[in-house]
Design a protein around this nucleic acid. Structure first.
Length: 491
RNA sequence: CGGGGUAUAGCGCAGCCCGGUUAGCGCAUCUGCUUUGGGAGCAGAGGGUCGCAGGUUCGAAUCCUGCUACCCCGACCA
């Protein structure tokens, strides 16, 4: 059978994996660590893309595309950057195959060895900065505000659908500026763009903050991040924006002449979010019946299921269904009328619940008589009968309510699972028993952070941007601290 | 890369220990009839190089050797 999902209480991890597959979002492929994103899952990703892309454009960015392959030598130029990715790179060494002499199949032609190996991009800073050198001579060429939608490859040891795959889809913005101030403002602006989409479209509340040096992006001077809390008490990094200083400009010799005639290195940022957001979506909202998608994100916002006996009755119901569909579509709602005769209503109810469609309308013979329609909302699973008259406006309002309710529910969950710890014992107990975000004092040293990670698996998720000054003592060493940082066990 | 496991129909599994006709079961699929307000019922049907390569044997899914792939637990990580 296996028609029902494993419950979250039984095995959260298993629930997640089953949900991804059964809701038709993605599946494992024949390629190690790489997933197939199915049309329904890709449809949700496309909506995330559209919301982000629109905001990128609105803040003055343009899309471009850079190569998938990067010559190995490029990675030698920025030491700390290569150190961050060296252990997880796929390397292309040959360019030709041939038939094996013993007929056993296709083998690599050893004669076709590349002079210089190519790295499948784990991120594109190096190739982009090598290109920017050609684009930038004068202060008049700045700023450069470019984004690319692409796939990248990081050869992870252990993978999970959406959360960590060897190949994943993302966008990476790479900007070049004349001043440090401007670059920092850019990095902060893009963090706000991410927070806007994640909170207001995906209904996932996030903490904005900066990373501790240990968790900082390889090659960055400052890493800004948004951190979300999942239902199982673990944190998920939902997006990052980096202030890169002049590191890449220096490594790739990107200079410009200022108005005053001096020559200076440019200032850089990079920022990205990935298909990992799909994982955040699932683990923030979904329940034991399946996915729950916030209305602003849902590819299908309203599904209409007819309940009928015989073709004649289906025809009568279809007339009403099409009319209601047209009324809702006129208001810009995304509506599907599922008149397939191959599945029964009960089957469809379960199907759309599993797929997280926010609102379901059912129309049957009783509704024809009374001029009503059964309205079921996915977030609360509540059902009620409403008059068909003026349904479009009612549903439009309901969708807004669902959007707000889902966000509020997630905020409440996060608040319930955010705690302060003032002693080491308290800290250990919180991390171990409840998980969630733990606000605690830290002496600011990488060594202490490392030690805490060893002892509890918890890491500093971020130093909140709205951190309040508060004298305290480091949870582990007792050394002085002037504010609390956020700890959690992370995905 | 260390530890553990698995590989048999589209999916999930049994059979293997103790070799023996035609390799089974559930779900899914197809056909027919009855059904349709929460994953329908009955009857029938199709679907397999038992991961790959060797070996032992009269005979191998089953025993032996080698290989490959995948999964889980660690270390690593958006």
């Amino acid at each position: 059978m296996a028609k029902n999902l494993t419950s979250r209480d039984t095995d959260y991890s298993r629930w997640y994996n089953e949900l991804v597959v059964k809701a038709d979002l993605a599946q494992n492929s024949g390629v190690r660590g790489c997933m197939v994103i199915k049309p329904y899952g890709y449809g949700i990703w496309e909506r995330v893309q559209a919301e982000l892309d629109q905001r990128f454009k609105a803040t003055g960015h343009e899309n471009a595309y850079f190569p998938l392959f990067i010559p190995k030598s490029y990675f030698s130029k920025e030491a700390s950057h290569v150190e961050g990715f060296a252990k997880e790179c796929a390397v292309v060494t040959h360019y030709r195959l041939k038939n094996a002499e013993d007929g056993s199949g296709v083998v690599v032609d050893e004669d076709a060895k590349l002079e210089e190996e190519l790295i499948v991009r784990p991120t594109s800073e190096t190739i982009i900065w090598d290109t920017y050198r050609d684009w930038i001579q004068s202060y008049r060429d700045l700023p450069i505000l470019v984004n690319q939608w692409a796939n990248v490859v990081r050869w992870e040891m252990r993978t999970r659908l959406f959360l960590r795959t060897a190949e994943f889809l993302w966008q990476e913005g790479h900007t070049a500026h004349a001043t440090k101030t401007e670059a920092i403002a850019e990095a902060e602006q893009m963090l706000d763009v991410y927070a806007d989409v994640v909170e207001n479209i995906m209904a996932i509340p996030v903490l904005k903050g900066t990373k501790s040096p240990n968790e900082r992006f390889a090659g960055a001077l400052e890493t800004y991040c948004i951190e979300a809390l999942m239902q199982d008490g673990k944190a998920l990094q939902a997006g990052t924006s980096h202030f890169l200083g002049q590191n890449f400009a220096k490594a790739f010799d990107v200079k410009f002449q200022t108005k005053e005639g001096t020559v200076e290195h440019v200032w850089a940022t990079s920022w990205g979010v990935s298909t990992r957001l799909m994982g955040a979506l699932i683990m923030t909202h979904s329940d034991d019946n399946g996915l729950v998608i916030p209305p602003k994100l849902a590819p299908i916002q309203v599904v209409i299921v007819p309940i009928y006996r015989g073709e004649e009755q289906l025809e009568e119901i279809s007339v009403v269904a099409r009319k209601l569909k047209a009324e809702m579509e006129a208001k810009g709602l995304r509506v599907k009328f599922d008149n397939r005769d191959t599945h029964k209503p009960g089957w469809k109810f379960n199907e759309y619940e599993l797929k997280g469609v926010p609102v379901r309308l059912a129309i049957g013979p009783k509704d024809l008589e009374k001029g009503t329609v059964e309205v079921a909302r996915r977030d609360t699973l509540e059902k009620e009968y409403l008059q068909q008259e003026g349904i479009a406006t009612k549903i439009e309002n309901l969708l807004e309510q669902i959007q707000l309710n889902m966000f509020q529910k997630a905020v409440d969950f996060r608040e319930e699972n955010s705690h302060k710890a003032d002693t080491w014992d308290e800290f250990k107990a919180l991390i171990k028993k409840k998980g969630g975000f733990v606000y605690a004092h830290w002496d600011g040293t990488p060594e202490t952070e490392e030690k805490i990670k060893e002892l509890t698996k918890a890491t500093i998720r971020c130093i909140p941007l709205d951190q309040k000054y508060e004298d305290g003592k480091c949870i582990l060493t007792g050394n002085p601290s002037k504010g609390r940082v956020v700890f959690a066990v992370a995905y």
